[in-house]
Amino acid sequence: MATVILVRHGRTGANATGVLAGRTRGVHLDETGAEQAHAVGARLSVLPLAAVVTSPLERTRETAKAIAAAQAAPSRPRSEKGLLECDYGTWTGRELKTLAKEELWRTVQAHPSAAAFPDGESMAEMAARAVGAVRRWDFRLEDEHGADAVWVAVSHGDVIKAILADALGMHLDAFQRLVVDPGSCSVVRYTPLRPFVLSMNTTEGDLGHLRPPRKSKRRKRASSDAAVGGGTGAAAHADPVRPTA
């Protein structure tokens, strides 16, 4: 049961000034964003990451490089087009305060599954390709590194919200209830029966509890069952306790 840490890139000048950057090239981390990226790298340095996978845009690649550089055995981040920012079409590069006056804005807020951006993609298309990319990489890395593999996917706010909504079993129309801040980490563990959302939108704190356990010949096979009653806490790789008669 591999575990993915979803990281939103650090802040950019476009974020700070309220501009919808979308897929615009040349949008880099600002000073605050660079600090956020290094902070994420420090948080994740306690984990032996199986891979760092990133959207191809500059702001995500810069964040991914900071994460990879902080590893005890640094490796080159891998690019994945499925993690790209939503294609906002003609909305790209415009101020959010101006876009908020358009009729489509209300659809994006209240009924995002029906929202399609002019000359761009729909939010449903964005969600489908992002979820598909994460699940493919999760399966691949579990196959390569074992069920205890921990890896990172660096992407964008709406993309990560869509992945989390899927993991939570939420309809895409409810994904605007989720918040994913720049430089934040959200953690999902996929299993044969269901995904488990271990945390969302954290920007500080120790992630050592995600470290793969030491190999043991007696180690029990991991379960897809949820712990009835809530479980025992942050041991992400522990087997849920089953009820007894």
Results as ranks from 00 to 15, higher is better:
6 L>K: 08
9 H>Y: 04
9 H>G: 05
9 H>S: 01
10 G>C: 01
16 A>D: 10
20 L>C: 08
20 L>Y: 07
23 R>A: 13
23 R>T: 13
23 R>F: 12
24 T>Q: 15
25 R>N: 11
26 G>S: 09
26 G>L: 09
29 L>K: 08
30 D>K: 05
32 T>R: 05
41 G>D: 04
42 A>Y: 03
45 S>D: 07
53 V>A: 08
53 V>W: 04
54 T>P: 03
56 P>M: 09
56 P>R: 06
57 L>V: 06
62 E>Y: 00
65 K>M: 09
65 K>Y: 00
66 A>E: 12
70 A>W: 00
73 A>S: 15
73 A>G: 08
74 P>G: 03
76 R>G: 02
78 R>A: 13
80 E>A: 07
82 G>L: 03
82 G>E: 06
84 L>E: 15
84 L>M: 15
87 D>R: 15
89 G>L: 13
93 G>V: 08
94 R>G: 08
95 E>D: 12
96 L>Y: 13
97 K>V: 13
98 T>H: 14
99 L>G: 14
103 E>F: 05
105 W>E: 06
105 W>M: 06
109 Q>K: 14
111 H>C: 10
113 S>H: 09
115 A>E: 04
115 A>V: 08
119 D>I: 01
121 E>A: 13
121 E>R: 13
123 M>S: 04
128 A>I: 00
131 V>L: 01
131 V>R: 09
134 V>E: 09
135 R>P: 00
137 W>I: 02
138 D>M: 02
141 L>D: 01
143 D>C: 03
144 E>R: 08
145 H>M: 00
146 G>I: 05
147 A>I: 13
149 A>C: 12
150 V>G: 00
151 W>R: 07
156 H>D: 01
163 I>T: 02
165 A>D: 06
169 G>N: 10
175 F>A: 05
181 D>F: 01
184 S>N: 00
187 V>R: 08
187 V>D: 11
189 R>M: 11
195 P>V: 05
199 S>V: 02
202 T>S: 10
204 E>S: 14
204 E>Y: 05
208 G>T: 10
214 R>N: 10
215 K>V: 09
217 K>R: 12
217 K>D: 05
220 K>H: 04
221 R>P: 07
222 A>H: 07
225 D>I: 10
226 A>I: 08
230 G>D: 00
233 G>T: 07
236 A>N: 06
236 A>Q: 03
238 A>H: 06
